[in-house]
């Protein structure tokens, strides 16, 4: 599904990712943990094609296709979805209009017939129910005046509507209370199947308790320095990241 090799990427002249390798197969859930500034969010932005992030070296194949030659919307239409750490407010563009445009674009790209307004509205209402956002939110501007948790749930709502193949969740759990966290985890779990993959960036084990990832990776200074099973997450939770610095052969910043 996703194959990243020796990825080096920078923003504003500063190299953040320094040779990252990651392979995600269909149906797998990968968690990426790591200290602040290690490049976790950068990975999501680079995958999504955000323009300020420059790929200097390496390759990214998504379903065998070179992702780096694709535009932002092409990647989304190919099935890549990034749930943002800080979903943006877009006053003046209603959630409904935004969702409809995105869903239409997806269906068109997949060669499926467009949904009628009624079908679409029903689907949107169902998705609202799933993430427990009041349906009135559909009429409001995208994330306009939403609380932090509501914005995150709105991103998950989009994921439910768009049915992507690969979902990257960038600290979707931060700023969520326990109930909201459980809700988001339930939504993600409901979307898991043999084909759909997830890359979950998080600081906390709590979300991983619900999601039960297949792999946990530690990202530090732009590289994955350790990979393991779910137990790695609990080790990190208990001991922090400091012990990893003692690993031989790893660079260490002061």
């Amino acid at each position: 599904m996703l194959s990243i090799k020796n990825l080096k990427a920078s923003i504003a002249g500063k190299t953040i990712l320094k040779g990252l390798d990651l392979t995600v197969n269909p149906g797998e859930v990968h968690a990426i943990m790591g200290p602040n500034g290690s490049g976790k969010s950068t990975l999501g932005y680079v995958l999504s094609g955000r323009e300020a992030y420059i790929v200097e070296e390496g390759s990214i194949l998504f379903e065998g296709v070179d992702l780096l030659t694709m535009g932002i919307e092409e990647r989304a239409l190919a099935g890549l979805f990034l749930a943002f750490q800080y979903p943006l407010e877009i006053p003046g563009v209603s959630n409904l209009e935004f969702l409809k445009a995105a869903v239409d674009a997806q269906r068109e790209a997949r060669g499926e017939p467009l949904m009628s307004s009624k079908e679409f509205l029903n689907a949107a209402r169902e998705a609202c129910k799933a993430v427990r956002l009041p349906t009135e939110f559909l009429k409001r501007g995208v994330n306009e005046g939403f609380s932090g948790g509501e914005k995150k749930r709105n991103d998950i709502l989009q994921m439910l509507m768009l049915q992507p193949k690969l979902c990257i969740l960038d600290e979707t759990d931060s700023g969520l209370d326990i109930d909201a966290l459980k809700l988001v985890a339930d939504c993600v779990n409901s979307q898991r199947d043999a084909k759909r993959s997830f890359v979950v960036v998080t600081h906390y084990q709590r979300l991983l308790d619900y999601l039960k990832p297949d792999y946990v990776h530690v990202l530090s200074e732009g590289k994955i320095i350790k990979s393991g099973g779910p137990s790695l997450a609990s080790e990190l939770e208990e001991q922090g990241y400091a012990w990893l610095d003692r690993q031989p052969g790893e660079e260490k910043s002061l």
Binding site: S48, G49, R50, E51, G71, I72, E73, R75, A76, L77, F81, L82, F84, P87, L88, I90, V93, F98, A101, A102, A105, Q106, A109, V142, Q158, L162
Partner: peptide, 13 residues
Amino acid sequence: LALYYLRSRGIGL
């Protein structure tokens, strides 16, 4: 940034 957000959901430029 808003433009990027919309495009990241598959909406054309």
